[in-house]
Write a protein that binds this DNA or RNA. Structure first.
Length: 405
RNA sequence: GGGAGUGUAGCGAAGUCUGGCUAAACGCGACGGACUGUAACUCCGUUCCUUCGGGUUCGUAGGUUCGAAUCCUACCGCUCCCA
């Protein structure tokens, strides 16, 4: 055993007194980032509607991208020529790439699954393309992401026990192949993905198998695909304790505020989800007082801010004003979200202006990033249960028929 | 003045020849909803009134018929062409 740190490693800072929630940091070749964290999703090398400048301004740390989609277009070789994905998309912080495992699920009508790998009929021009654990590693090595995900199969939650067992075991074998195929363990960290749907024995077999491989981090997959929140918590209850405490733990595809808290309480450090940007593009804002469907006519004359409780964060607060003029943008405390009214955003959506989708996307991401900042503070103060109670109350989860994001 | 065409639900537009299966296609707009490791500015509802039994509609007024948006008569409006 050497003391040499892997490319990606977890530093533990604090354990919340009442819940055991973790407060830590993840070290990567592109910087060190605070956990628990939420990672915006930029599938095709772009967080839809939000530029890298804005991402940084609103406090993004890691962002996600996708192996399958970048492989299909523009191609991993091309991105390697460009100097890697960071360079290509102009993002100097950490990137995590999903493997294409989710596309095995979401593009299930256009692919064939076998032990060797997955044959996709790609969604752009119909070409047959073969994705194996090894190919997924080659692509991600070319992309140069900080965290790479093993190729797995994201399984529908309500499949049969036998199907889930077979699939989980195959994903486990694929993890093994991925680790062997990994060409750059010194600069990129490979995470394994625990599968097994709602079955304790299968989750356990999956987790134990992956932990035995001593990967730098572990993800829990196959959740938030239609099962209830109660179900998800039940699975996390018996799955999280199986994962090592000195490695980052990533719950894939979760963004609902109550689920974020409940998962952090169960030991999760990292989250991602398309939810904030997807619903933003369709006109739904996430706010501290619940959802705001900005297209609803009741916002037509509403001149209040989008979210009165949202603060703004800027990593580069002072802009150089090349003209020497005073403007609101020179104020380091300037909060663009405070100055935008619901009426204005309603109008932008109504008029189908692209800016509406952009602002809403930034807003929702900022909302979640601030939510995680607040949660980190609550953990540091051993105050997470009170934070949870406040959220449940303020966001209206305690109301009858509550169903927020 | 002469000739041709046309009036359908918020708007556009089918249906009229060959009357019933038409409260009336379709599109837009409007109003709701869904969305959680992104084939997604997408998808799904509702959109004459209603106490859900029904009621009142297709420029207006009459007529024919068991039955009319559809056939007949008159009137009103609009568009285009020629003078």
């Amino acid at each position: 055993m050497t003391n040499k740190k892997p490319a990606v490693w977890y530093e533990h800072l604090h354990t919340e007194k009442h819940t055991g929630a973790r407060r830590g940091r993840i070290h990567t070749p592109h910087g060190t980032f605070e956990t628990p964290m939420f990672m915006p999703v930029g599938t095709q090398g772009a967080v839809k509607g939000v530029g890298t400048r804005e991402l940084k301004d609103i406090g993004s740390q890691f962002i996600l991208s996708n192996t399958y989609h970048l492989w299909v277009r523009p191609g991993d070789e091309l991105i390697a020529q460009a100097g890697g994905l960071h360079q290509y998309m102009g993002w100097d912080q950490a990137i995590l790439t999903d493997s294409g495992g989710f596309q095995v699920f979401s593009l299930s009508d256009a692919r064939k699954l076998a032990e060797e790998g997955v044959t996709f009929q790609n969604h752009v021009n119909g070409d047959k393309m073969f994705l194996s654990p090894e190919v997924a590693m080659r692509i991600q090595n070319n992309l140069g992401s900080d965290v790479m995900m093993q190729l797995d199969e994201a399984i529908p939650y309500f499949e049969s026990y036998d199907y889930i067992k077979d699939s989980m075991q195959r994903s486990l074998r694929w993890a093994d192949r991925a680790q062997i195929a990994h060409k750059k363990p010194d600069s990129q960290g490979l995470f394994g993905i625990v599968q097994g749907a709602g079955f304790k024995a299968l989750r356990s077999e999956s987790a134990n198998g992956l932990v035995g491989m001593d990967l730098p981090g572990y993800a829990v997959g196959g959740l938030s695909v239609g099962e209830s929140k109660l179900e998800m918590n039940r699975v996390l209850d018996f799955t999280m304790p199986l994962l090592p405490e000195d490695k980052p733990r990533y719950l894939m595809g979760v963004a609902a505020p109550d689920s974020l808290i409940d998962s952090v309480i169960r030991g999760v450090d990292m989250f991602d989800s398309v939810l904030p940007t997807r619903i933003a593009r369709k006109g739904t804002l996430m706010t501290r007082r619940g959802r705001v469907v900005i297209k609803n006519s009741k916002y037509k004359n509403d001149f209040t801010p989008l979210d009165p409780d949202l603060s703004y964060y800027s990593a580069n607060p002072i802009r150089t004003n090349q003209f020497g003029n005073q403007s609101q943008f020179d104020n380091p405390n300037y909060n663009p979200f405070q100055n935008l009214t619901r009426s204005y955003l309603h109008h932008l959506f109504n008029a189908n202006e692209i800016l509406g989708a952009q602002l809403a996307s930034q807003h929702n991401l900022r909302y979640l990033l601030q939510f995680m900042e607040d949660m980190r503070t609550a953990i540091e103060n051993d105050d997470l249960l009170a934070f949870r109670a406040t959220v449940m109350e303020e966001y209206g989860y305690n109301k009858p028929n509550a169903r927020l994001f």
